[in-house]
């Protein structure tokens, strides 16, 4: 049997942490883009757009991310599509993230006072002009703290990609444990890695929240 030094373990976890970061970024950028489009469509008021989006959000908020991963991976295979763990994990995380961000951002848009809509309306601005110039700039400021806060959930969510064979931090930890039989050391290190990724974001989110509070917007 090969002997693993502590450095070997840390080095391997560091290498795997890259993929946790990359997968988080894919999920976040993809989910934010899709979530933004969904938010604007959902708020436009047409019920033919609003209802399907509500159902979409409810489904992804109401089922475990783990099941979404399984369905994206095994479900696609059952339908005859041969998807990689990469693709399945990315798709599942993007959909999951978009549903949550769509809901968070809807709340932020609705938190902008009604009078702003009315003032824009009497000045002759239409829906899109009002959104662009009046509502979104204000909603955006409100949305930054909860959005950064939610990105922490996305990072931790990537751990579930390990169950479909995607080698990220958690999966690497499991593999190292199989080779070294030192679960406490390894999973403590894995947890530490996640903490190092998430804690700064949590702090940043709290800092932004305080800034909003000081600006008198909350």
């Amino acid at each position: 049997m090969i002997d693993f030094t502590l450095w070997d373990i840390v080095r391997n976890l560091l290498l795997a942490a890259r993929w946790t970061v990359v997968l988080s970024l894919i999920a976040f950028v993809g989910g934010a883009t899709l979530g933004f489009v969904l938010t604007v469509l959902r708020l436009s008021g047409t019920k033919w757009l609003r209802y399907p989006i509500n159902i979409y959000v409810d489904i992804f908020q109401g089922t475990p991310l783990l099941m979404q991963m399984f369905l994206a991976f095994f479900g696609a295979a059952a339908l005859g599509f041969n998807v990689s763990a990469w693709a399945a994990a990315s798709v599942a995380l993007i959909l999951f993230t978009s549903a949550f961000l769509c809901d968070i951002w809807r709340g932020c848009v609705e938190a902008v006072p009604k009078g702003q809509w009315q003032a824009s309306r009497v000045l002759g601005m239409n829906y899109l002009e009002t959104m662009r110039h009046v509502i979104l700039p204000q909603a955006l400021r409100l949305s930054v703290p909860p959005t950064v806060g939610f990105s922490v959930q996305v990072i931790k969510g990537t751990a579930l990609a390990s169950v479909i064979g995607f080698v990220e931090l958690t999966r690497a930890g499991t593999m190292l444990n199989n080779a070294t039989f030192a679960p406490f050391t390894i999973f403590a290190l894995v947890a530490l890695f996640y903490f190092a990724l998430c804690y700064p974001l949590s702090c940043y989110s709290r800092h932004l929240e305080r800034q909003l509070y000081d600006a008198g917007l909350r």
Partner: peptide
């Protein structure tokens, strides 16, 4: 013109 001004705060 409204009672609550409704200026754009940003």
């Amino acid at each position: 013109v409204f009672q609550s001004f409704n200026l754009f705060p940003h």
